[in-house]
C-alpha cells in the first residue's frame, strides 16, 4: 500500500480506511467511531454499485437516490456538488462523512444554513439570484408533474426575493439568507436526516456486515 491523499491503496487499488482513519473522521464530525464504521459499510455498498473503485460516481449517487443511473436530474447535480468538496468529479469517503455530518440532527444550525445556501447558489456567485430561484422552482414542478402558470411562478419568485432581499440589490446574499431562514425555518427541513442520529442502531445490518464484525466472528470460529 502507498500513500495517496493521506489514504492507503489496497492491493485491489481501492482506497482503504483502517480503524485510525475511521477514528480521525469521527473526531472531526458528530459521529462516533461505530457510526463512521456503519457509514463506511454504506459507502462501500454505494461506491461499488456500478464502478467498484472505492469512490462514489455521480451515476452511483443517482442510482441510490432515484433508483436509476441514467437521465439528467437538476437536483442530483446540486447534491453531488455538495458532496464533491474537492471538485474531482467523484466522492471519496472523507467527503461522504464530512457532508453527511452537516445533515446530522446535532450539527450546528449555522452549518446547515451555510450548506443550504451553497445548494441554492447554483452559479457559485455568493448570491442566490432570481433566475436561479426560478430555475429551481421550475425543476421541482417538472419533477413532480405539477402545473403552475408562468404568472403565478413569477409572482412567487418575485415575492420571495422581495421578502429575503433586505439590502435591495435584487439578489439574496448570505446575510439576507441567514435572516430569511431564521424567519422561515421550514426551509431547512431537508438539511436534517433523522437517520443519522443513531445510524448504527437503526441499521444494525451495517454493523453485522462490517469488517470488524467479520474479524471477530472469524476469531471466535478459530477459538472453537
Amino acid at each position: 500500500c502507498f500513500n495517496y491523499q493521506s489514504r492507503c491503496i489496497g492491493k485491489n487499488q481501492k482506497p482503504y480506511y483502517n480503524y485510525e482513519d475511521l477514528a480521525r473522521l469521527a473526531q472531526g464530525t458528530r459521529f462516533t467511531v461505530n457510526e463512521v464504521e456503519a457509514l463506511y459499510v454504506l459507502f462501500k455498498r454505494l461506491s461499488s454499485s456500478i464502478i467498484d473503485d472505492g469512490l462514489i460516481h455521480k451515476e452511483e449517487l443517482q442510482l441510490a437516490l432515484f433508483q436509476t443511473p441514467n437521465g439528467e436530474n437538476f437536483f442530483l447535480d446540486r447534491v453531488f456538488d455538495l458532496f464533491d468538496e474537492k471538485s474531482k468529479g467523484v466522492i471519496d469517503f472523507d467527503e461522504f462523512v464530512h457532508t453527511l455530518s452537516i445533515f446530522h440532527p446535532y450539527a450546528p444550525l449555522e452549518e446547515k444554513i451555510d450548506y443550504a445556501f451553497k445548494l441554492y447558489d447554483i452559479r457559485k456567485t455568493g448570491f442566490i439570484e432570481r433566475e436561479e430561484l426560478k430555475q429551481m422552482v421550475k425543476a421541482m414542478l417538472m419533477e413532480s408533474d405539477m402545473n403552475l402558470s408562468d404568472d403565478l411562478l413569477e409572482a412567487i419568485v418575485d415575492k420571495t426575493i422581495a421578502d429575503a432581499d433586505k439590502d435591495k440589490d435584487g439578489k439574496i446574499s448570505k446575510e439576507d439568507w441567514k435572516v430569511f431562514v431564521s424567519r422561515n425555518p421550514s426551509i431547512l427541513k431537508n438539511m436534517t436526516l433523522a437517520y443519522l442520529k443513531d445510524i448504527a442502531c437503526i441499521f444494525p445490518s451495517f454493523i453485522f456486515k462490517s469488517d470488524l464484525d467479520e474479524l471477530v466472528k472469524t476469531k471466535e470460529l478459530q477459538d472453537i
Partner: peptide, 25 residues
C-alpha cells in the same frame, strides 16, 4: 399567500437524501 419559493423547492424529493440509507438489492 405566505408560500415562498424555497418552501416549494423543499418539497422536492431531489434534495431528500434519505434514499441513501434504503437497502437495495
Amino acid at each position: 399567500s405566505n408560500l415562498n419559493a424555497f418552501d416549494i423547492i423543499s418539497y422536492s424529493s431531489g434534495f431528500d437524501l434519505s434514499g441513501l440509507f434504503e437497502e437495495t438489492d
